[in-house]
Simulated scan of single mutants.
Amino acid sequence: MAQEIELKLAVPDASLAPVAAWLDANGEAKGELTLLNVYLDTPERDLARARAALRLRRKGAQWLQTLKTAGQSQSGLASRHEWETEVACEAIELQRLPDEARALLAPLAARLAPVFRTDFARRTWILEQDGARIEAALDSGAITAPATHAQERIQELELEWLSGDESRAADALRALGARLQAIAALTPSDLSKAARGYRLAGVANA
């Protein structure tokens, strides 16, 4: 089980160009790709009530399944548990997940169905900050909830801790965030894409 530690910042239109230019100048550009994602839950929204999110992601020719469990988020800085494995196609494969994740999903498996989508283009860079290795991901796209015919824009920067002293990960992310906020108007965001998707789908307190 991985521990995901990240800082999320909302990016207004006027900040897109200066943020990308700063990242080009100060980080190692890793390219751009399109990520197509569908989030699943039961009709009773068992995962939402447990503050968990289950996602199938198409990344080029590769399919990934990801389960994230309840975490904490304050001033855009989030920490949560995450399991991610490859799958053969757009279908959940419980046997590829570790025991803890499989135990959560197995009772729900027969009733899982798509609830909303998050589809976006992602540009990524790798940066160093105070001994930490950090991935910066600039996402632009949309969240759609077919049942409510609702759509919401995605335009955000995610700074994710990759390696270094984990006890100092939050400080390193905040320091890098402050450097970026000095060159563009960026606002910390505590809502994950999954939380926003559930709200669009009409699920309260997701």
Rank of each mutant, 00 (worst) to 15 (best):
A109H: 13
I154E: 03
S163T: 08
P188A: 09
F116T: 04
D190V: 04
D130H: 10
E82R: 10
T144G: 07
M1P: 15
T34F: 10
V19P: 13
L23G: 06
A21E: 11
M1V: 13
A48Y: 05
A142S: 15
A178K: 13
S192P: 07
L77H: 06
L112Q: 05
P146Y: 04
L35G: 12
V115H: 09
E152N: 01
A50T: 05
S73R: 14
F120V: 07
Q74V: 13
A113W: 00
R153C: 03
A206G: 13
L104W: 03
S15D: 00
Q155Y: 04
D190P: 10
E135K: 15
I134W: 05
A91N: 08
T124R: 15
R168G: 08
L108S: 08
F120N: 12
I134C: 06
I134E: 03
G76W: 01
A78Q: 07
G131P: 05
A21Y: 00
L36V: 12
W161C: 11
G202C: 01
R96W: 00
A132W: 02
A150P: 08
F120A: 10
A103T: 11
L36A: 13
A175D: 06
E152H: 05
A175Q: 13
S192D: 01
W22E: 03
G60N: 08
